[in-house]
């Protein structure tokens, strides 16, 4: 695994020097939370089973941050690195493909985690965010969800040819997913039709699992979500490994 730690550090440097990634992963979800928080507040209500708007939104927004990584950050940056010939240059060294893959996975996992922690901290500081789950379980669930979307991201990155296409495809998957999955609007307020469409949207299972674990549900209450996410990781991960191209 020669070069692994340097590669991860390099990705961090690039990330902090470019506005877009920073904004979407770290700032955008927080701004949304602050806007909606200032409108709805976080008073406990029967509508949310005794919790407030923010309490329900934060775990759903975790899904949004996870989706940003998989649908936008990864496909866009990998495809444009490939398009520019940055990957071609890397390939001319003894760097092993597994090493760079692992570096990307670790890096995107860490920034998704960082974005999530900032979001949770914002909720806690400004709105006294309530949490009823188990920290270890939520971390485990978060890891599963992130993995499934990272693999989706690498699959998309293998299919698209240019950074620009990645951008278009990423956006056109991201916003509908956000809407239909309940990541943006609490699922309690979604109509049955939208909820039914949501069943075909991977992000729905992320939101279900994160919200469930957040409020202390047992794993057994989420068998189906977990099955879908694991299947997604395996299927898309193997497709990505199979069709990934450096040029």
């Amino acid at each position: 695994m020669k070069g692994l730690s340097k590669l991860i550090i390099t990705e961090f440097k690039r990330f902090t020097r470019e506005f877009e990634g920073l904004f979407f992963t770290l700032v955008f979800p927080v701004i949304l939370l602050l806007i909606f928080g200032s409108i709805y507040g976080n008073k406990p209500s029967d509508y949310f089973n005794g919790f407030g708007f923010i309490d329900v939104s934060v775990p759903a927004y975790l899904g949004m941050i996870i989706a940003i990584g998989g649908l936008m950050s990864i496909p866009i940056s990998v495809a444009s690195d490939r398009e520019k010939g940055i990957l071609h240059r890397l390939r001319a060294t003894p760097l092993r493909p597994q090493t760079i893959m692992l570096a990307w996975i670790i890096f995107y996992f860490l920034i998704t985690l960082a974005g999530s922690l900032i979001l949770v901290a914002t909720g806690k500081i400004f709105y006294g965010l309530r949490f009823q789950g188990n920290v270890f379980n939520i971390f485990l669930g978060f890891t599963l969800c992130t993995t499934s979307f990272l693999t989706l991201g690498f699959m998309l990155a293998s299919i698209v040819r240019s950074g620009r296409t990645a951008n278009v495809i990423g956006m056109s998957l991201f916003f509908p997913m956000l809407f239909f999955s309940g990541a943006m609007i609490p699922s309690q307020s979604l109509s049955t039709v939208i909820k039914n469409i949501g069943k075909f949207i991977p992000l729905t299972y992320v939101v279900n699992l994160m919200q469930g674990l957040w409020f202390g549900n047992a794993w057994s209450a989420h068998r189906f979500d977990i099955t879908v996410l694991i299947a997604m990781s395996i299927v898309m991960g193997s497709i990505a490994v199979k069709i990934f191209k450096w040029e």
Binding site: G3, K6, L7, K84, G85, I86, A92, T93, P94
Partner: peptide
Amino acid sequence: GMQLQESSLPARLKVWEIIDLYASFYD
């Protein structure tokens, strides 16, 4: 060692960072 006709390096990396990164790939 190779220099390629069509290749590039990340725009927002400094010269020393690039050299340092590439050095880490070799024995």
